[in-house]
């Protein structure tokens, strides 16, 4: 039994069908698998696979969720934004958060950085002027093994101070 699935990712519309045939999306496929392996959006990373580390975070209707424990079959009608979708698709200009991370070297290996930036974006969507505690709390679901946290907080604060919130 097949059913249609329309995904809205980074402003693009993707038409799939859910089913067991070649090329169809199986019911158990996660959004992270669809993004990385079908659409080629490899910015979101697979790490713990349990929703605990935040590396796979994407925005769903403006809020960060763990794409590794989200079933693609349940994303119909959702607006999904990945790290690739933050910048301007025409000019290639980065999101101010991304710029701030570059400026503050707020990463080392960079593996967890897309998830952290998504979490920051999610925070600022709901709370444009968070306190430092609120920033820390909003990022408490993003793990970094290189200890980039200090620079991350500096970077986020710089976005607020610069008044360039998205």
């Amino acid at each position: 039994m097949s059913r249609d699935l329309t995904l809205n990712i980074n402003g693009e519309t993707y038409e799939f069908t859910i089913g067991r045939k070649l090329g169809q999306i199986p019911e158990s496929e996660t959004l992270l698998e669809t993004l990385r392996e079908r659409i080629g959006l490899t910015g979101s990373k697979m790490s713990c696979g349990q929703g605990a580390c935040g590396c796979c975070a994407v925005l769903m209707d403006g809020k960060a969720v763990a794409s590794c424990i989200t079933l693609t079959a349940e994303c119909e009608g959702k607006e999904i934004i990945t790290i690739e979708g933050l910048g301007d698709p025409v000019t290639g200009e980065l999101d101010p958060i991304q710029e701030a991370f570059l400026e503050h070297n707020a990463f080392q290996c960079g593996f967890c950085t897309p998830g952290i930036i998504i979490a920051v974006k999610s925070l600022l969507n709901g709370n444009p002027n968070p306190s430092e505690d609120e920033i820390k709390e909003a990022l408490s679901g993003n793990y970094c093994r290189c200890i980039s946290h200090y620079q991350v907080i500096e970077a986020v604060k710089s976005v607020l101070e610069g008044g360039k919130t998205a």
């Binding site: 929703g51 605990a52 975070a57 769903m60 763990a66 989200t70 679901g141």
Partner: peptide, 9 residues
């Protein structure tokens, strides 16, 4: 409960 990312879902 858990993390902000989890609580969003």
């Amino acid at each position: 409960v858990a993390t902000p990312i989890v609580r969003n879902a």
